[in-house]
Design a protein around this nucleic acid. Structure first.
Lengths: 206, 206
DNA sequence: CGACTATTTGCGTGGCACGCATATATGCGT
DNA sequence: ACGCATATATGCGTGCCACGCAAATAGTCG
């Protein structure tokens, strides 16, 4: 099944995605040309658009992949685990850092974080990132429907759960990025967000 | 306060936004040039980009305005109304149809709905629409923070509520558009979604 | 090995976003 | 009512981007 062709395609896609992100974090969104990304991935400029239909999409691609993995992770959770517990765990699993980042020396890492922050602030990218989340949300909704035995077509329930879960993760990430020192661990924020959601978001004590 | 300048600006912006949506629903996204939109609004092509930084942004502009109105509506609700009731009402208020649509003759209206459906399916627009929702969500979070006396900077609560509310509306709209005949009234779907959210989205009976 | 299909590449085209300089419209103090 | 200061509209030029098409190249399978 996994012939040479398929593997090469996946590799090219990954290389393009990573190059896009890396260069953008380094130089800023509009100091990176499609040409540069293609060159960094060792491929012709024209080929870039065989994989992604825009620069923004390429940059968001890893975000998409990661988000999709949440749905897959939910399907892996034991069937007798309560829904919200399973969702929380599935979400948490996606926040282990990849090897490219893990291998960075410390000063480079600081610059990297700063670059990513700037990148996330770019309006042209936000839309694409949100679109990726939306796509993944659909997958997640399907997984929730399976797990709970509800009907995706006639009931809002699975979509509501998926949307709420995505929202929880998004809010936790935003909170994590905004509140600088000392950062509350992202795991705690996510757990927290899910707990509040499952409790119906009651007004907190004042 | 509301000088001639300000009013003209608002009018031009509205005209451009409406023209963009109208033409796109009619002919499809990439059969509409920026030039056409500008012409329909009686303004030079270059001026278009003084108001919107992309074609997609122009088309999403009304969506943005509407979403922003939800936050404003929440601020108008009586202070002693429970949070979720107030949110539900604020959301419902945004779903009264505008005069341009209301005045349409029936056959035109059917085509209009079809056009809007196609428009919403356009990938290039989805991102921009989602971005608009995100912007409005920030406003909504601020309003929630005010109303509940929670701190936007240190607590996730207001953002969680805002995100969940946006998600509820989005899911309701999607459900409304997907399930064709006979459509459940959107008001009922929205109310329903909010109720489930406020109850903590418990697994439904099977 | 040899035909078959998928993928890559180069080239050309149409369109878009925006910087900059200039013209025009509005606001405001006198 | 007038004219200066400021905001907005417009025209033009530039660089980049997405993509259609056709030729070349590389994997796949009998």
């Amino acid at each position: 099944m996994t012939g040479l062709r398929e593997r090469k395609k996946a590799e090219t896609r990954a290389a393009l995605g990573w190059a896009a992100i890396h260069l953008t974090a380094e130089r800023g969104y509009d100091n990176v040309r499609v040409e540069d990304i293609a060159a960094a991935a060792g491929v012709s400029p024209r080929t870039f658009n065989n994989y992604f239909s825009s620069k923004a999409e390429a940059i968001a691609s890893r975000h998409l992949d990661r988000s999709l993995r949440t749905a897959a992770a939910l399907r892996e959770r034991p069937a007798d685990e309560p829904l919200w517990a399973a969702l929380t765990q599935a979400a948490l699993e996606q926040f282990t850092r990849g090897p490219e980042v893990e291998a960075m020396p410390s000063p480079a890492h600081a610059q990297w974080v700063a670059g990513v922050r700037t990148m996330l602030a770019e309006p042209a990218l936000q839309g694409e990132r949100l679109r990726a989340v939306a796509v993944a949300e659909a997958e997640l909704a399907a997984a929730v429907a399976e797990r709970t035995g509800t009907d995706l077509a006639t009931t809002m329930y699975p979509r509501l759960v998926a949307a709420a879960a995505s929202a929880a993760v998004a809010v936790a990430m935003q909170h994590y990025l905004d509140s600088a020192d000392p950062p509350t661990p992202i795991e705690r924020l996510i757990t927290d967000a899910f707990t509040q959601l499952a409790a119906g978001l009651p007004a907190p004590p004042r």
